[in-house]
Design a protein around this nucleic acid. Structure first.
Lengths: 157, 157
DNA sequence: TAAAATAGTTGGCAAATATAACTAATTTAA
DNA sequence: TTAAATTAGTTATATTTGCCAACTATTTTA
């Protein structure tokens, strides 16, 4: 199972595999809820109050037209509410509803439980170092020229 | 940009973001090719001879019905060939064609170039430790009960 | 104050993901 | 040793996602 440096998968591929397994486990552990998608958005909203859709798009690298559908789904299910920002009426503040707030606690618990299990045999030091590198890699990747990426403010033609 | 331990995203979410940025950059850097998808499969085939479709599915966590479409796409484009394994005629060995072999070198170069840039300001030691943790996390996640995951041999009902 | 940029929306299309049901070949276990 | 179970690959289908172009409303800029 262990790979040599030569044959190991590229970091992007390995990260994608990790995320697929992670969401498989997460979705399984949350199947009793009345929604079955977009848990990462709820996690984000739990930690970020008064953000608008574009903020979520930027942080989670989700396309803004996809975000409309996410919000339709979550507000229809009664988890989130959209409120126009009075100081910039283009923006819609997104907040968890009473129900969403309550249920999201369960979502966050599941996320943390799976993180816990994912790092079960890994020391605190190693885990911190791992995330430090992960953030650096993301920062580096953000600088590279990129295709169809998610925040389509301006078309490159 | 740096996160506290409390507010940082779950590892699965962060890995997914990383992979989206990674593939954005990769796709951009390979846009001159006559294919525009499934580069990770080609990378895998470059390092693994005489594998059948299921091997690729298992390693890259891709559903086997999706793999059929991947193989249709790549063989139609003339990059790969399917050959029945004479020792187990259920299996189709997948190999790179002459053209695929040649072009995949370019794909592998691009992967390695982006990995290089992704880890540009990260030491060799840190990088190795990072991948070690990444593999451990994947191993841990593999053990968890999981939904609709990709290798659907047996239905859990 | 006209032009440019931004937040969000809509509609459409291609691709990704998952399920169910199938064929053919091989392995297993009674 | 053969009937049952499993496996590799395929087909068909439905749903979701990702991306683009075009649009409205609002705010920023020059």
């Amino acid at each position: 199972m262990s790979k040599t440096e030569e044959s190991r998968l590229p970091v992007g591929t390995q990260a994608f595999i990790l995320s697929k397994m992670y969401y498989g486990a997460l979705t399984k552990s949350l199947e009793k809820l009345d929604i079955e998608r977009y848990f990462s958005v709820l996690y984000f909203l739990h930690n970020n109050k008064n953000c608008c859709q574009q903020n979520i798009c930027d942080e989670l690298k989700i396309d803004k037209t996809a975000m409309v559908k996410v919000m339709d789904y979550l507000s229809k299910a009664g988890w989130v509410e959209r409120k126009t920002n009075p100081d910039d009426r283009r923006e819609h503040f997104i907040s968890l509803s009473k129900k969403g707030e309550k249920q999201t606690k369960e979502v966050v618990r599941s996320f943390k439980a799976i993180d816990e299990k994912a790092f079960s045999n890994i020391s605190e030091t190693e885990r911190k170092a791992f995330f430090k590198v992960m953030f650096k890699v993301c920062e580096n990747l953000e600088k590279l020229p990129s295709d169809h990426l998610t925040f389509n403010y301006k078309k490159s033609k």
